[in-house]
Design a protein around this nucleic acid. Structure first.
Lengths: 196, 196
DNA sequence: GTCTATAAATTGATAGAC
DNA sequence: GTCTATCAATTTATAGAC
């Protein structure tokens, strides 16, 4: 999304990544052919391999960018306030909103984890654990200050993240739900789930 | 699971279905080969087609059985009590427990929906809507009686179901979580999310 | 950096012997 | 109802011309 050609349009490498996101989200990684990706990018099948090493390396790049972005969203949300209640509200809100606003990338991030190579899966796994740890830390601080009541911190952290993650399974932009509406709902539910 | 041979063991058809569950849950539908399924069932590649029409018909059978089972679980949970609060607690508990106890089937049910044929997907979709409607009905009755406080009933119903559904993404039997522990946690969170 | 052409392997499914 | 053998199509990836 950052590279630009002289005429201001996306590079061929970027167009292929965007096409891969479309295809992987729509049909899944294994059911997507490199021909499909090339065709969506308006190129021949061979052009894929000029810009990317393999089909899996396209998945790795999409997955890495997605995890990096999601981690940044939740980390920044955690830093917006000193109030643990408001912090949890903001984290759940922004995490759910990101998944709604990036539901195609989110679907790839969440559902194609197993399709990565062992090495790539191990690397991506560190991002997942950081996201989980960030949520657990917010709950722990709230409990320590006495403003949150959470008896199972890891389990509740998983549950709060599940609200955002699971929406990529069914959310479609332009449907009867807006990302903001869902994010607000999840944020309110999160406060009820955790406040003392 | 119900057919038996003269010696009491599962039929070849059943063994192939069990093998398909294993393989689809582990690698995904598209990445699973019919050779893999046959091999897990201890049979030749051709034997698959003596007992099943196609790879997709195996997925349809697994998906139909899974959805039927999940709908029965949540319907029976809804009928165990007249108290709306206890009803929601029981529904969330049993729905999450079923997903933990059947996490492989649950993964197929939830993640391979798009791999079904159009006709099969339409049929399975009716089960999904019944599950969602059952949860919405429980919330509506509790709000009408004044014992639950839920301002977005469809959204909250989705969120309650998400707790169970999303655990199939990461839950593994024998890990640090038990199904009962998760189900209890989700049930308690559900009460906090909905009680007046 | 793009293309056409194709290699090399794998796939879902079938034929036909036993 | 099981097998071996195989078909026909499709797949990822590469070779080589422009």
């Amino acid at each position: 999304m950052t590279e630009l050609t002289a005429n201001g349009g996306p590079t061929a490498r970027e167009r292929l990544l965007d096409a891969a996101v479309e295809a992987f989200a729509e049909k899944g990684f294994a059911a997507t052919t490199t021909r499909d990706i090339a065709s969506r990018a308006g190129m021949s099948p061979a052009a894929v391999y000029v810009h990317h090493d393999s089909k899996e390396s396209l998945l790795y790049r999409v997955s890495l960018d997605g995890h990096t972005h999601a981690l940044r969203i939740i980390t920044e949300a955690a830093a917006t306030t000193d109030s643990p209640t408001e912090r949890v509200r903001q984290m759940v809100h922004d995490f759910s909103l990101w998944h709604a606003d990036h539901s195609r990338v989110g679907r790839i991030v969440q559902y194609e984890y197993h399709a990565l190579t062992d090495e790539h899966r191990a690397e991506i796994g560190t991002y997942r654990r950081k996201i989980e740890q960030t949520m657990q830390n917010a709950l722990t601080e709230g409990v320590d200050q006495g403003v949150l009541a959470v008896d199972d911190i890891p389990g509740t952290a998983f549950a709060l993240l599940s609200l955002g993650i699971d929406l990529v399974r069914w959310f479609e932009p332009g449907g009867s739900w807006t990302g903001e509406g869902l994010a607000d709902l999840h944020a309110r539910l999160a406060v009820r789930m955790t406040s003392a």
